[in-house]
Amino acid sequence: MTGTVRRRRPWAWIWVQRLDDWLLPTAPPERLAVVRLAVGIYAYVNVFISTGEFARLVDRPAAEFEPVGVATLLDAPVSALVVWLAYAASVVSGAGFVAGAAFRLSGPVFALCNLAWASYHASWGQMLHFEHLVTLHLLVLGFSPAAVALSVDARWGRRSPGRPDLSYGWPLRVMAIMTVVTYVLAGVTKLRVSGWAWVDGTTLVNHIGYSATRLDLLGEPRPPLATFVVGQEWLSGPMAMGALGVELLAPLALFGGWFRRVWVPSVLLFHLGTLTTMFVFFSFNGLGLALLPLYRVECLLERRRWRGAMGRWRSG
Protein backbone atom coordinates (compact mmCIF):
# COMPACT_ATOMS: atom_id res chain seq x y z
CA MET A 1 0.00 0.00 0.00
CA THR A 2 1.45 3.30 -1.05
CA GLY A 3 0.54 6.86 -0.20
CA THR A 4 1.74 9.92 1.55
CA VAL A 5 1.85 10.04 5.31
CA ARG A 6 0.37 13.33 6.55
CA ARG A 7 1.87 14.57 9.78
CA ARG A 8 -0.81 15.89 12.04
CA ARG A 9 0.14 19.04 13.90
CA PRO A 10 -0.44 19.10 17.66
CA TRP A 11 -3.70 20.76 18.69
CA ALA A 12 -1.77 23.39 20.69
CA TRP A 13 0.01 24.46 17.52
CA ILE A 14 -3.31 24.71 15.69
CA TRP A 15 -4.66 27.02 18.41
CA VAL A 16 -1.53 29.14 18.33
CA GLN A 17 -1.95 29.42 14.57
CA ARG A 18 -5.61 30.45 14.98
CA LEU A 19 -4.66 33.02 17.59
CA ASP A 20 -2.00 34.34 15.25
CA ASP A 21 -4.47 34.61 12.36
CA TRP A 22 -6.89 36.44 14.64
CA LEU A 23 -4.21 38.81 15.91
CA LEU A 24 -3.04 39.74 12.43
CA PRO A 25 -6.18 40.31 10.37
CA THR A 26 -6.41 42.18 7.13
CA ALA A 27 -8.94 45.00 6.75
CA PRO A 28 -9.83 47.54 4.08
CA PRO A 29 -8.39 51.04 4.61
CA GLU A 30 -11.94 52.42 4.94
CA ARG A 31 -12.48 50.51 8.19
CA LEU A 32 -9.53 52.17 9.88
CA ALA A 33 -10.49 55.51 8.34
CA VAL A 34 -14.04 55.40 9.73
CA VAL A 35 -12.64 54.75 13.21
CA ARG A 36 -10.16 57.62 12.71
CA LEU A 37 -13.03 59.93 11.83
CA ALA A 38 -15.18 58.88 14.78
CA VAL A 39 -12.42 58.94 17.41
CA GLY A 40 -10.83 62.03 15.89
CA ILE A 41 -14.06 64.05 15.86
CA TYR A 42 -14.75 63.03 19.48
CA ALA A 43 -11.26 64.06 20.60
CA TYR A 44 -11.34 67.26 18.56
CA VAL A 45 -14.67 68.37 20.02
CA ASN A 46 -13.18 67.62 23.43
CA VAL A 47 -10.34 70.05 22.74
CA PHE A 48 -12.87 72.87 22.31
CA ILE A 49 -14.96 71.77 25.28
CA SER A 50 -11.76 71.83 27.35
CA THR A 51 -10.86 75.42 26.43
CA GLY A 52 -12.06 76.60 29.85
CA GLU A 53 -9.90 73.95 31.52
CA PHE A 54 -6.81 75.21 29.66
CA ALA A 55 -7.61 78.72 30.94
CA ARG A 56 -8.20 77.45 34.48
CA LEU A 57 -4.90 75.58 34.69
CA VAL A 58 -2.93 78.61 33.53
CA ASP A 59 -3.71 80.36 36.83
CA ARG A 60 -3.25 77.45 39.22
CA PRO A 61 -0.65 77.86 42.02
CA ALA A 62 2.48 75.75 41.50
CA ALA A 63 2.03 74.17 44.95
CA GLU A 64 -0.98 72.24 43.63
CA PHE A 65 1.02 70.63 40.80
CA GLU A 66 1.35 66.85 41.28
CA PRO A 67 2.55 65.57 37.89
CA VAL A 68 1.35 62.27 36.42
CA GLY A 69 2.00 60.54 33.10
CA VAL A 70 4.31 62.40 30.74
CA ALA A 71 3.92 65.51 32.93
CA THR A 72 6.33 63.82 35.37
CA LEU A 73 9.03 65.04 32.98
CA LEU A 74 8.30 68.53 34.31
CA ASP A 75 9.64 69.90 37.58
CA ALA A 76 7.05 72.66 37.73
CA PRO A 77 3.96 73.85 35.84
CA VAL A 78 4.64 75.25 32.41
CA SER A 79 4.03 78.90 31.59
CA ALA A 80 0.75 80.22 30.22
CA LEU A 81 2.41 80.69 26.83
CA VAL A 82 3.34 77.01 26.63
CA VAL A 83 -0.18 75.93 27.67
CA TRP A 84 -1.74 78.06 24.93
CA LEU A 85 0.84 76.95 22.36
CA ALA A 86 -0.08 73.34 23.20
CA TYR A 87 -3.73 74.27 22.79
CA ALA A 88 -3.03 75.82 19.39
CA ALA A 89 -1.04 72.74 18.34
CA SER A 90 -3.99 70.55 19.37
CA VAL A 91 -6.43 72.68 17.36
CA VAL A 92 -4.29 72.68 14.22
CA SER A 93 -3.14 69.05 14.34
CA GLY A 94 -6.64 67.90 15.37
CA ALA A 95 -8.10 69.44 12.22
CA GLY A 96 -5.46 67.58 10.20
CA PHE A 97 -6.17 64.35 12.08
CA VAL A 98 -9.91 64.47 11.39
CA ALA A 99 -9.56 65.58 7.78
CA GLY A 100 -6.66 63.21 7.15
CA ALA A 101 -4.49 66.08 5.92
CA ALA A 102 -0.70 65.73 6.14
CA PHE A 103 -1.52 62.80 8.39
CA ARG A 104 2.05 61.56 8.72
CA LEU A 105 2.62 64.74 10.74
CA SER A 106 -0.83 65.68 12.07
CA GLY A 107 -1.62 62.11 13.25
CA PRO A 108 1.32 61.68 15.66
CA VAL A 109 1.25 65.36 16.72
CA PHE A 110 -2.44 65.30 17.67
CA ALA A 111 -2.03 61.96 19.50
CA LEU A 112 0.97 63.28 21.47
CA CYS A 113 -0.73 66.63 22.18
CA ASN A 114 -3.67 64.69 23.57
CA LEU A 115 -1.36 62.57 25.74
CA ALA A 116 0.43 65.68 27.01
CA TRP A 117 -2.80 67.55 27.74
CA ALA A 118 -4.46 64.55 29.46
CA SER A 119 -1.36 64.12 31.65
CA TYR A 120 -1.11 67.82 32.47
CA HIS A 121 -4.85 68.06 33.16
CA ALA A 122 -4.63 65.12 35.59
CA SER A 123 -1.63 66.63 37.37
CA TRP A 124 -3.65 68.87 39.67
CA GLY A 125 -4.93 66.36 42.20
CA GLN A 126 -7.77 64.84 40.21
CA MET A 127 -7.19 61.86 37.95
CA LEU A 128 -10.06 61.73 35.47
CA HIS A 129 -10.16 58.20 34.11
CA PHE A 130 -12.41 59.29 31.23
CA GLU A 131 -9.35 60.34 29.22
CA HIS A 132 -7.25 57.19 29.35
CA LEU A 133 -8.80 55.02 26.65
CA VAL A 134 -9.29 57.76 24.08
CA THR A 135 -5.64 58.76 24.62
CA LEU A 136 -4.54 55.18 23.96
CA HIS A 137 -6.74 54.86 20.86
CA LEU A 138 -5.43 58.15 19.48
CA LEU A 139 -1.85 56.95 19.93
CA VAL A 140 -2.59 53.83 17.88
CA LEU A 141 -4.49 55.75 15.19
CA GLY A 142 -1.99 58.60 15.03
CA PHE A 143 0.89 56.25 14.26
CA SER A 144 -1.07 54.04 11.86
CA PRO A 145 -1.99 54.51 8.15
CA ALA A 146 -5.47 55.71 9.16
CA ALA A 147 -5.73 58.37 6.46
CA VAL A 148 -5.25 56.21 3.39
CA ALA A 149 -8.99 56.48 2.75
CA LEU A 150 -11.63 59.14 3.49
CA SER A 151 -9.02 61.84 3.75
CA VAL A 152 -7.57 64.93 2.14
CA ASP A 153 -4.33 62.99 1.65
CA ALA A 154 -6.17 60.33 -0.37
CA ARG A 155 -7.93 62.97 -2.49
CA TRP A 156 -4.70 64.82 -3.22
CA GLY A 157 -2.98 61.56 -4.05
CA ARG A 158 -0.43 61.66 -1.25
CA ARG A 159 -1.42 58.12 -0.40
CA SER A 160 -2.29 55.43 -2.89
CA PRO A 161 -5.67 53.76 -2.42
CA GLY A 162 -5.06 50.53 -0.61
CA ARG A 163 -6.46 47.04 -0.75
CA PRO A 164 -7.31 45.08 2.42
CA ASP A 165 -4.09 44.74 4.33
CA LEU A 166 -2.58 43.81 7.66
CA SER A 167 -1.48 47.40 8.21
CA TYR A 168 -5.16 48.49 8.43
CA GLY A 169 -6.47 45.49 10.36
CA TRP A 170 -3.83 45.13 13.06
CA PRO A 171 -4.19 48.65 14.58
CA LEU A 172 -7.91 48.00 15.01
CA ARG A 173 -7.19 44.70 16.69
CA VAL A 174 -4.80 46.44 19.09
CA MET A 175 -7.46 49.09 19.85
CA ALA A 176 -10.04 46.38 20.50
CA ILE A 177 -7.62 44.66 22.89
CA MET A 178 -7.04 47.99 24.66
CA THR A 179 -10.78 48.48 25.10
CA VAL A 180 -11.49 45.10 26.64
CA VAL A 181 -8.36 45.13 28.80
CA THR A 182 -9.45 48.41 30.44
CA TYR A 183 -12.71 46.74 31.50
CA VAL A 184 -10.89 43.67 32.83
CA LEU A 185 -8.46 45.87 34.76
CA ALA A 186 -11.35 47.76 36.37
CA GLY A 187 -13.00 44.46 37.36
CA VAL A 188 -9.81 42.90 38.71
CA THR A 189 -9.03 46.07 40.69
CA LYS A 190 -12.48 45.94 42.32
CA LEU A 191 -11.87 42.34 43.40
CA ARG A 192 -8.35 43.09 44.52
CA VAL A 193 -9.29 46.15 46.58
CA SER A 194 -12.63 45.00 47.99
CA GLY A 195 -12.67 41.23 47.43
CA TRP A 196 -16.06 39.63 46.94
CA ALA A 197 -17.57 42.26 49.27
CA TRP A 198 -18.09 44.35 46.16
CA VAL A 199 -20.45 41.73 44.74
CA ASP A 200 -23.16 41.80 47.42
CA GLY A 201 -24.27 45.25 46.31
CA THR A 202 -23.80 47.13 49.59
CA THR A 203 -20.69 48.84 48.32
CA LEU A 204 -22.46 49.83 45.09
CA VAL A 205 -25.39 51.34 47.04
CA ASN A 206 -22.95 53.25 49.24
CA HIS A 207 -21.13 54.55 46.16
CA ILE A 208 -24.45 55.74 44.71
CA GLY A 209 -25.33 57.38 48.05
CA TYR A 210 -21.91 59.00 48.21
CA SER A 211 -22.17 60.42 44.66
CA ALA A 212 -25.68 61.80 45.25
CA THR A 213 -24.72 63.37 48.59
CA ARG A 214 -21.63 64.96 47.07
CA LEU A 215 -23.81 66.52 44.37
CA ASP A 216 -26.32 67.68 46.99
CA LEU A 217 -23.52 69.43 48.87
CA LEU A 218 -22.38 71.16 45.67
CA GLY A 219 -25.93 72.37 45.06
CA GLU A 220 -26.42 70.18 42.00
CA PRO A 221 -29.35 67.89 41.15
CA ARG A 222 -29.16 64.22 42.08
CA PRO A 223 -28.83 61.53 39.41
CA PRO A 224 -32.36 60.61 38.32
CA LEU A 225 -32.29 56.94 39.37
CA ALA A 226 -30.13 57.24 42.52
CA THR A 227 -33.01 57.53 44.97
CA PHE A 228 -34.94 54.72 43.25
CA VAL A 229 -32.03 52.25 43.23
CA VAL A 230 -31.12 52.94 46.87
CA GLY A 231 -34.77 52.35 47.77
CA GLN A 232 -34.83 48.92 46.08
CA GLU A 233 -32.56 46.77 48.25
CA TRP A 234 -33.10 43.60 46.16
CA LEU A 235 -31.68 45.34 43.06
CA SER A 236 -28.22 46.19 44.32
CA GLY A 237 -26.76 42.64 44.36
CA PRO A 238 -27.71 41.77 40.75
CA MET A 239 -26.56 45.22 39.61
CA ALA A 240 -23.15 44.76 41.23
CA MET A 241 -22.76 41.25 39.81
CA GLY A 242 -23.85 42.47 36.39
CA ALA A 243 -21.31 45.30 36.44
CA LEU A 244 -18.52 42.96 37.48
CA GLY A 245 -19.57 40.40 34.86
CA VAL A 246 -19.50 43.01 32.09
CA GLU A 247 -15.97 43.99 33.11
CA LEU A 248 -14.41 40.59 33.67
CA LEU A 249 -15.96 38.85 30.66
CA ALA A 250 -15.09 41.64 28.22
CA PRO A 251 -12.31 39.70 26.38
CA LEU A 252 -14.84 37.21 25.00
CA ALA A 253 -16.26 40.07 22.90
CA LEU A 254 -13.03 40.03 20.89
CA PHE A 255 -14.05 36.78 19.29
CA GLY A 256 -17.33 38.17 17.94
CA GLY A 257 -20.41 36.02 17.55
CA TRP A 258 -23.21 35.83 20.07
CA PHE A 259 -21.08 36.98 23.02
CA ARG A 260 -20.28 40.27 21.33
CA ARG A 261 -23.97 40.68 20.50
CA VAL A 262 -24.77 40.28 24.21
CA TRP A 263 -21.76 42.10 25.66
CA VAL A 264 -21.95 45.30 23.62
CA PRO A 265 -25.56 46.18 24.64
CA SER A 266 -24.67 45.14 28.20
CA VAL A 267 -21.72 47.47 28.37
CA LEU A 268 -23.78 50.35 26.94
CA LEU A 269 -26.45 49.61 29.57
CA PHE A 270 -23.71 49.54 32.22
CA HIS A 271 -22.60 53.06 31.22
CA LEU A 272 -26.20 54.25 31.10
CA GLY A 273 -26.56 52.85 34.62
CA THR A 274 -23.56 54.76 35.97
CA LEU A 275 -24.91 57.91 34.30
CA THR A 276 -28.41 57.66 35.75
CA THR A 277 -27.41 56.54 39.24
CA MET A 278 -24.14 58.45 39.79
CA PHE A 279 -23.89 61.03 36.98
CA VAL A 280 -20.68 59.29 35.99
CA PHE A 281 -20.45 58.90 32.23
CA PHE A 282 -17.46 57.60 30.37
CA SER A 283 -18.63 59.23 27.15
CA PHE A 284 -16.03 57.64 24.87
CA ASN A 285 -17.18 54.21 26.01
CA GLY A 286 -20.83 55.01 26.67
CA LEU A 287 -21.36 56.47 23.19
CA GLY A 288 -19.94 53.27 21.73
CA LEU A 289 -16.84 54.88 20.19
CA ALA A 290 -14.47 52.64 22.15
CA LEU A 291 -16.33 49.64 20.77
CA LEU A 292 -16.01 50.54 17.08
CA PRO A 293 -12.80 48.49 16.56
CA LEU A 294 -14.89 45.40 17.29
CA TYR A 295 -16.93 45.94 14.13
CA ARG A 296 -16.61 46.12 10.35
CA VAL A 297 -17.58 49.77 10.46
CA GLU A 298 -16.86 50.44 6.80
CA CYS A 299 -20.32 49.03 6.09
CA LEU A 300 -21.64 52.37 7.38
CA LEU A 301 -20.35 53.85 4.12
CA GLU A 302 -22.45 51.61 1.91
CA ARG A 303 -25.26 53.73 0.53
CA ARG A 304 -27.51 50.79 -0.23
CA ARG A 305 -27.53 49.88 3.47
CA TRP A 306 -28.69 53.38 4.37
CA ARG A 307 -31.26 53.30 1.56
CA GLY A 308 -32.53 49.95 2.81
CA ALA A 309 -32.72 51.19 6.38
CA MET A 310 -34.49 54.39 5.32
CA GLY A 311 -36.92 52.38 3.18
CA ARG A 312 -37.74 50.06 6.07
CA TRP A 313 -38.22 53.08 8.36
CA ARG A 314 -40.52 54.84 5.88
CA SER A 315 -42.61 51.74 5.29
CA GLY A 316 -43.02 51.45 9.03
Binding site: V68, G69, L115, A118, S119, A122, M127, H129, E131, H132, T135, L136, L139, T182, L185, A186, T189, K190, R192, V193, S194, A197, W198, T203, V205, N206, H207, G209, Y210, T213, R214, L217, V280
Partner: peptide, 21 residues
Amino acid sequence: DGLPLSTYPMYSGTRSNMSSF
Protein backbone atom coordinates in the same frame (compact mmCIF):
# COMPACT_ATOMS: atom_id res chain seq x y z
CA ASP B 1 -2.53 54.40 38.89
CA GLY B 2 -1.15 56.58 36.11
CA LEU B 3 -1.96 58.00 32.71
CA PRO B 4 -2.53 56.61 30.14
CA LEU B 5 -1.85 53.29 31.89
CA SER B 6 -4.09 52.73 34.88
CA THR B 7 -5.63 50.14 37.19
CA TYR B 8 -8.96 52.02 36.84
CA PRO B 9 -9.54 52.12 40.59
CA MET B 10 -12.63 54.35 40.50
CA TYR B 11 -15.39 52.93 42.70
CA SER B 12 -13.30 49.85 43.49
CA GLY B 13 -12.97 50.39 47.24
CA THR B 14 -15.50 49.27 49.82
CA ARG B 15 -17.39 52.28 51.05
CA SER B 16 -19.42 52.72 54.19
CA ASN B 17 -22.72 54.55 54.24
CA MET B 18 -20.95 57.09 56.48
CA SER B 19 -18.79 59.50 54.47
CA SER B 20 -17.02 62.78 55.14
CA PHE B 21 -17.09 65.65 52.66
